[in-house]
Simulated assay, not measured.
Amino acid sequence: MIDNKLPKQAVNELHRKVGRNILLYQKIELAMKDLIAKNNTSGKTDELSKIFEKRLQDNGKKTLGGLTQSFINDFFKSGEKCEHKFDDKQPSIGLNISINTEDVSEIEKKYQGVVSSRNFIVHNFLERYIFASVEDCAEAEFYLDSEYDKAKLFLNDLLGIYDLLNEFAQKLQSESEYIVKRIQKFTDADGISKHMASDVIQGLKREDGWIVLSNASNILRAEHPELFADMKNYGHNSLKQIMNSSNLFEFYSEETLKGGRRDLFRLK
């Protein structure tokens, strides 16, 4: 258990990073559920959405470990040619990644490593780290930062697969706009967050390091109005919700001179 005598700042930072890592693992889990549900989906045009929702419900019952094994089996094919034919009457969408037989174990090791790290933080973190000093907190923070970086790279790989699936989905756009939107929801929202983390937006920092959200939003809307065509396409109702889902930013609300309130943000 964390010692109450430790500096409050050190304890709060440790708590923040534990939460940050867990949220990232949840994004990985959600991405896997969605990808598995979409991949190798086929059926009549008016049935595709129901098929996808049924598969998504089935994935909701699986643990991260079970999802990981399903993902490997579904997407990675050893020594096979990966081709998908498109049928106008019964369209399908799918992606299989061809790998060498000897690479299978490395893929499994990489994916299972993410599961092990997530389980350790959720179930065994306090058993491993004894928080008797600031140094102990620093050691735990170093571990959390290291695992966060690995998980972020892993999520980026999943986003890359989203991009590939999106290419296939574009071919089905006239038959099933539904699938296209579900695939784009994740990647487009992530793209908006990348814009908000860009040098242009970060150049709006005040001396205290915070950026007024409305100022940044006005610039992004002027340069990329297409991103704001319909926020609900991304599964969120506001720019702040989209940014918050990326886990890249922290937010702060301050009172204005006229007695109102405004949101500010900065990179974590």
Results as ranks from 00 to 15, higher is better:
residue 23 L to T: 10
residue 23 L to W: 02
residue 24 L to N: 14
residue 24 L to P: 03
residue 25 Y to S: 07
residue 26 Q to P: 00
residue 27 K to H: 09
residue 27 K to G: 04
residue 28 I to C: 07
residue 28 I to L: 13
residue 30 L to R: 11
residue 31 A to P: 01
residue 35 L to F: 12
residue 38 K to T: 09
residue 38 K to G: 08
residue 38 K to E: 03
residue 40 N to W: 08
residue 40 N to I: 11
residue 40 N to Q: 06
residue 42 S to E: 14
residue 43 G to Y: 00
residue 43 G to H: 01
residue 45 T to I: 14
residue 45 T to W: 00
residue 47 E to M: 07
residue 48 L to E: 00
residue 50 K to T: 05
residue 51 I to N: 10
residue 52 F to D: 02
residue 56 L to K: 14
residue 56 L to Q: 09
residue 58 D to I: 14
residue 59 N to F: 07
residue 60 G to A: 07
residue 62 K to V: 09
residue 62 K to Q: 12
residue 63 T to N: 06
residue 64 L to F: 04
residue 64 L to C: 13
residue 64 L to H: 03
residue 65 G to F: 03
residue 66 G to L: 08
residue 67 L to V: 10
residue 67 L to Q: 12
residue 67 L to N: 08
residue 68 T to S: 15
residue 72 I to N: 09
residue 75 F to R: 08
residue 76 F to H: 09
residue 77 K to F: 07
residue 77 K to T: 06
residue 81 K to C: 04
residue 84 H to G: 06
residue 84 H to L: 15
residue 85 K to C: 02
residue 85 K to A: 14
residue 86 F to L: 07
residue 87 D to H: 05
residue 89 K to I: 11
residue 90 Q to R: 13
residue 91 P to C: 02
residue 93 I to F: 00
residue 93 I to C: 03
residue 98 S to W: 03
residue 99 I to T: 04
residue 100 N to S: 07
residue 102 E to L: 06
residue 104 V to G: 01
residue 104 V to R: 13
residue 106 E to G: 02
residue 107 I to N: 01
residue 107 I to Y: 13
residue 108 E to S: 12
residue 110 K to L: 06
residue 111 Y to K: 06
residue 113 G to W: 01
residue 115 V to M: 11
residue 116 S to D: 10
residue 118 R to D: 02
residue 120 F to H: 15
residue 121 I to L: 12
residue 124 N to H: 13
residue 124 N to D: 15
residue 128 R to N: 08
residue 128 R to L: 02
residue 129 Y to I: 09
residue 133 S to G: 01
residue 134 V to M: 10
residue 135 E to P: 02
residue 137 C to I: 14
residue 138 A to W: 04
residue 138 A to H: 09
residue 139 E to V: 15
residue 140 A to Y: 10
residue 140 A to C: 13
residue 140 A to E: 13
residue 141 E to K: 08
residue 142 F to A: 12
residue 146 S to V: 03
residue 149 D to T: 11
residue 150 K to P: 06
residue 150 K to H: 08
